[in-house]
Write a protein that binds this DNA or RNA. Structure first.
Length: 503
DNA sequence: ATGTGC
């Protein structure tokens, strides 16, 4: 990972431990950063990551910065941070994959229904046919019954998972209530500005591939994206059991966890914004925060901020419909292999998005870059949702060896701007992982756990050992009072991008 | 993350 941070040098500001949360004390140049991590987790934050945190904290208009236990170097700001500004929007700290998210589908099947390896192989095949992995168009080998034409594409990036869009794609319309946000509006708080912004974009050379990008709907992509079949293990406490019930989780049953984002469409929008803002900063001679062009920003109310907010919403709407369609296709695949199978969406929640929320009694943009919203029971934002009395589900991917987790926020989450981590967090860079990890060991480990995969060789840079200790990450969140565990998810098979397995 | 990179 390279970064262009130059102006600030991290010299290790004094750290004060308050329980498991650690605060960096303000110095002349460094206002406070709230860090959540046990001692061993804090050792995983390298100098570059800390420098990015300081750069982000000291950037114009930023009032809060939270560093979560899964933090590591990112684009401008660390992956695994929350950055709050009432006055500015930062495209880099939203990220290159706008609204990269998690979703969980609960099936009515007991674990025994997929115990047989042949059944799991059949499921892998049925799912891969419908929801392709890897870069590019995401060719499907089943009839394109849910084809996305240009008109529907334009509608869905403006409306998100509206009733009409769901119906057109065969997505159960009530799944919209199981979304953190089922749609995103433009900078004027209406879909109007999205329509006109889309018109403007479609007239430009870099959006001539719009129809092609819409064909990627219902696909995973590559990198850390995945689909994973799980068995749910609800926690032992009364609260875990009650919360699991409210979430619609069924102990001992099969579930399907998905991780993906806005694919090429979101990538186009994000990189288009980075380039355009970086050009303007140079042309207008505006100093870059910490000299890092990855931290370009736009003050709210400017045309630049409005355009970014519109583009972010367009990308986010694509990601939303992408996730819901994937879940619907996965359910269809289950029904093909196990006729009569029923499934319901538990939740769909992002970890790469900026949301307008109330922070310290004023409206601010909360940039969650590899961070998950964590609002507890009674939070005003949940009043109109099915999760007003429990807090919403928090979906945290760990790794196929150690499992994943469903959590729920506690009142202490106010300290982290109502956020937790988004997963385990990288501890080895991709190149590093390929050099030091052994393919045979990685595959043997999954095999020992009877975890099947569509990949003959599991992508080595995605191996569990390339990520932080998931249990220690969760311990950081729990002991800091941010969230509690509701259930663990035990992997039974994993679907990853196999295209680069033989590198 | 990405019609994957100068």
């Amino acid at each position: 990972m390279t970064t262009e941070t130059k102006r600030f040098t991290y010299t290790g500001p004094a750290m004060v431990s308050t329980g498991e949360a650690t605060a960096i004390l303000p110095t002349e140049t460094t206002p406070p950063i709230r860090i959540f991590g046990t001692e061993s987790i804090r050792e995983t934050f390298d100098v570059l990551c800390m420098q990015q945190a300081i750069n982000s904290r000291t950037a114009p208009g930023v009032t809060d910065l939270v560093l979560n236990p899964d933090a590591h170097c990112g684009y401008g700001a660390p992956v695994g941070c929350v950055m709050v500004s009432p006055t500015h929007i930062y495209p880099g700290p939203v990220g290159v994959d706008i609204k990269c998210s998690m979703s969980l589908l609960q099936l009515d099947l007991p674990a025994e229904a997929i115990e047989d390896r042949k059944t799991r192989r059949a499921l892998i095949s049925a799912i891969c046919q419908r929801t392709p992995t890897g870069a590019g168009r995401g060719q499907r080998s089943v009839p394109q019954s849910r084809h996305v034409n240009r008109t529907l594409g334009q509608q869905l990036v403006v409306e998100g998972a509206s009733r009409d869009v769901c119906k057109a794609l065969g997505i159960p319309t009530d799944w919209a209530f199981r979304c953190e946000d089922s749609f995103h509006v433009g900078h004027d708080d209406s879909p109007k500005s999205l329509e006109s912004r889309l018109d403007e974009l479609l007239g430009r050379r870099d959006m001539t591939n719009f129809s092609e990008k819409m064909q990627q709907l219902g696909s995973y992509g590559g990198g850390n994206h995945f689909g994973e079949c799980e068995v749910v293990a609800v926690g032992q406490s009364d609260r875990a059991r009650d919360t699991a019930k409210a979430f619609g989780l069924i102990d001992g049953n099969v579930a399907f966890l998905s991780h993906c984002g806005s694919r090429g469409f979101g990538h186009n929008l994000a990189t288009g914004q980075f380039n355009s803002l970086q050009t303007k900063f140079v042309r207008w001679g505006i100093p870059l925060p910490a000299g890092d062009r990855q931290l370009v920003y736009a003050p709210l109310g400017t045309d630049e901020a409005n355009d970014y907010l519109d583009d972010m919403a367009l990308g986010a709407n694509f990601a939303t419909v992408n996730h819901l369609l994937i879940n619907s296709l996965v359910l269809e695949a289950f029904r093909e292999v196990i006729p009569g199978a029923q499934g319901n969406l538990v939740y769909f929640i992002s970890h790469n998005i900026a949301r307008k929320e109330i922070v310290d009694n004023r409206s601010a943009w909360v940039h969650r870059k590899g961070a998950t919203r964590a609002m507890p029971a009674g939070h005003h934002s949940l009043a109109e949702t099915p999760f007003a009395k429990t807090g919403h589900p928090i979906l945290l991917p760990g790794n196929p060896r150690d499992g994943s987790a469903v959590m729920v926020a506690d009142d202490g989450a106010a300290a982290s701007c109502f956020s937790v981590n988004h997963g385990a967090g990288r501890v080895l860079g991709r190149r590093h992982a390929k050099r030091v990890l052994d393919q045979t060991t990685v595959d043997a480990e999954l095999d020992a756990g009877d975890i099947l995969s569509n990949c003959r060789k599991y992508p080595i840079d995605e191996a569990p050992a390339a990520y932080k200790d998931f249990n220690e990450v969760l311990r950081s969140v729990k002991t800091a009072g941010l969230a509690s565990e509701v259930a663990r998810l035990k992997a039974r098979f994993v679907i990853k991008d196999a295209s680069k397995a033989d590198d």
